[in-house]
């Protein structure tokens, strides 16, 4: 299968400190989860895929083109950790604005609002919605252009369990329709839902495989313990 993303020898510095160093990674289809503690470089890696991160070396190619290049801007959907939508506009106004920028249709606006289950809130001002609802508006914007790659930085933080379940079902539905979904999380129980799992710590990928492979390799029953075992093994 063709890889959606190919990263070679990626190096990112912030000031004197290396955030990512000599990172090699390929990402294919399905739902790929990026797990690791806060501050380990997850967001930086995601920003590299979208092409908004200044890099010190290496290459990041998405569908064969350099990340962030013009041809990719309507093929990659991106949700940052911050709710990057306009607080003083309604849900529909936000979506319609981004749809005009992307050249997406009104139908796509309705579909995006529906897929994050906000149809009954479409005329509410975003600033008055709950935190979880706001992050779903942000997610809806990323779904708008029907992207081929979805980069989601902790999209399920603060959501109630039922909704989290729904969103993961949505991610898998999108993945089945051919979208490469790349999701980060620091919640280990979400790891089980991924087709492929990357464990990240201090700027390095310390484990890569399906959740069951990773658990088997560490000989434990859950991903959290696997993470701990792998970290200890690395430290030893």
């Amino acid at each position: 299968m063709n890889n959606s993303v190919t990263i070679q020898d990626l190096w990112v510095r912030r000031g004197e400190r290396s955030v990512l160093e000599h990172l090699d990674l390929t990402i294919g289809g399905g739902v790929t989860g990026l797990l690791g503690p806060s501050g380990c470089g997850k967001s930086t890696l995601m920003r590299c895929l979208v092409g908004v991160q200044r890099i010190a070396g290496g290459t990041v190619r998405v569908f064969g083109e350099e990340a962030g290049s013009r041809g990719l801007r309507d093929r990659v959907g991106y949700v940052t950790q911050a709710v990057s939508v306009y607080q003083d506009l309604t849900v529909a106004e936000n979506l319609r604005f981004f749809a005009r920028v992307l050249g997406a249709s009104r139908d796509q606006v309705d579909r995006a609002i529906g897929s994050v289950d906000l149809t009954s809130y479409r005329d509410d001002v975003v600033g008055r919605l709950s935190g979880g609802q706001q992050s779903r508006v942000s997610l809806a914007v990323a779904l708008l252009g029907e992207p081929d790659l979805l980069v989601l930085d902790e999209p399920t933080v603060g959501l109630d369990p039922v909704l989290r379940e729904d969103l993961w079902a949505l991610f898998h539905r999108l993945a089945r329709s051919g979208v490469a979904v790349f999701v980060s999380s620091h919640v280990m129980d979400e790891a089980e839902r991924c087709d492929r799992l990357l464990l990240m710590r201090e700027g390095r990928i310390i484990a890569d495989g399906t959740p069951s492979e990773i658990k088997e390799r560490a000989d434990v029953d859950d991903v959290e313990s696997a993470f701990l075992a792998i970290v200890r093994e690395h430290a030893a």
Binding site: R73, V101, L102
Partner: peptide
């Protein structure tokens, strides 16, 4: 600061 600019610049704008 809200991230909307970053999002827009990652789009065809």
């Amino acid at each position: 600061s809200s991230g909307t600019l970053e999002r827009l610049l990652a789009m065809p704008l």
